[in-house]
């Protein structure tokens, strides 16, 4: 899904998947920090977003 979204023009750093066990709390924090930093660097998403219906 991530691949197809990127194929259609979504930025690679926008969507993240991972697998973290409930026992890996420090990893969870690290991954979330990593993700927030990457997404913040990209700024607000403009793709696949609809702010108001575009109609005639």
């Amino acid at each position: 899904m991530k691949n197809l979204l990127e194929h259609m023009g979504m930025e690679p750093d926008r969507l993240h998947f991972s697998w973290i066990s409930s026992a890996e709390s420090t990893k969870f924090v690290a991954v979330v920090n990593q993700i927030t930093a990457k997404v913040k660097a990209l700024g607000p998403n403009q793709r696949f977003v609809k702010k108001a219906a575009k109609v005639a």
């Binding site: 899904m1 197809l4 696949f48 609809k50 575009k54 109609v55």
Partner: peptide, 22 residues
């Protein structure tokens, strides 16, 4: 997904249609 001709809706349709064929 919206039913109008908004490009975001059209794109969402095509994206998910394709994904369902993965």
């Amino acid at each position: 997904v919206g039913k109008g001709q908004d490009p975001a809706d059209v794109r969402t349709f095509h994206f998910l249609r394709a994904y369902h064929c993965a």
